[in-house]
């Protein structure tokens, strides 16, 4: 069956990507990288959606992916603006230095 890829492979790929996104989120200190890790996670989830959509022969998964993209775009716009502001104020991108919520 060389012409057929098991669906679970897609999902496993999605899980791997997601886990890598989480890893990036956890282990990286640069705000931008962390942010990108989030995008990576979103992408992983999108893959799952599209896969599910395939499985059910349904277009809804695509739409969810579409919405995720929209949200990601909005998030990127605002998030990057925030990062810019933070950088303006603190001259650092290290996420551990941005902890004024701590106290």
């Amino acid at each position: 069956m060389m012409n057929a890829v098991p669906i679970s492979w897609f999902l496993t790929l999605s899980a791997i990507l997601f886990a890598l996104g989480v890893a990036g989120f956890l282990f990286r200190r640069n705000i931008i990288t962390v942010f990108m890790s989030i995008e990576l996670m979103l992408n992983a989830v999108n893959l799952s959606f599209v896969t599910f959509s395939y499985q059910h022969k349904e277009v809804s998964g695509h739409l969810f992916t579409f919405f995720v993209m929209v949200v990601a775009a909005a998030e990127a716009a605002v998030g990057l603006a925030i990062i810019l502001t933070v950088f303006k104020g603190r001259s650092t991108l290290n996420i551990d230095d941005v902890n004024s919520m701590k106290h």
């Binding site: 989480v22 989120f25 956890l26 962390v34 996420i95 551990d96 902890n99 004024s100 919520m101 701590k102 106290h103």
Partner: peptide, 11 residues
């Protein structure tokens, strides 16, 4: 627990 550190929350 509320360390203000996003990464600890994520953990």
């Amino acid at each position: 627990l509320q360390s203000g550190n996003i990464r600890s929350y994520a953990t």
